[in-house]
Amino acid sequence: MANYGMIIDLKNCVGCAGCDIACKTENNLDHDVHWSFHITETTGVFPNVGYRYIPKLCNHCENASCVKVCPTQAMYKDENGLTLHDPDKCIGCRSCELACPYNCISFNEDVQHQHQWQMDTEPLLEGITSSGKEIAEKFDNVPFPNYNPDRAKTYDGVRRKGIVEKCTLCDHRILDGKDPWCVVSCPADARIFGDFDDPKSEVSILLAENSAFQLLKSKGTKPKVYYINEF
């Protein structure tokens, strides 16, 4: 029993999108599906211009609106405070997508990676270059070459057609006592993962010591991704 969440130190963050792409490798995301993404913002007028980059991921809200609106309990809170999604229960009504104020849930019109790896059969240069399908067929039992089988421990390895999907905070890694892959991959150590119920955890200490903000706090979702410091 824990209450997992994350703190993102915006001062450490350099806005590199490394988390976004690392997430794609860990979770077998198609290029246009973003469990981890970012918001960028330029403010002011030359030469007094500000720019900031705010990493964004599922907030694993305590009061998760996606969980509330889901008609089939496919979106649920687990015993460790994660907001998770059960693809077997999901009917693809997409209510959660609309209810999430953070735009952190995406829907699969098709099986992920289909277009890039299975439906692409045309090489640019016949006999000289390849196609997605040709490459995919070189590997047995995996839908695409860099498929990470670890993902399939707790979720569809590649999400099926017609349902939504979202960040699980790498619950499959947490099970093994490891940090989420975005946390490990962040070259700036801007992401800190931990248990907010444990007062001795780094996240609890950081939260106590810093003035933190959450995204769209006014929505009442009680997000568990906190941001500290300025970009």
Partner: peptide
């Protein structure tokens, strides 16, 4: 132990279907 975003992208480069398979 750190790498930047470019290193991750190497994987896509490796498995890019537009790579040359043979001499031409």
């Amino acid at each position: 132990g750190k790498c930047c975003v470019r290193a991750h992208m190497g994987i896509q480069q490796l498995y890019d279907p537009d790579r040359l398979k043979v001499p031409m």
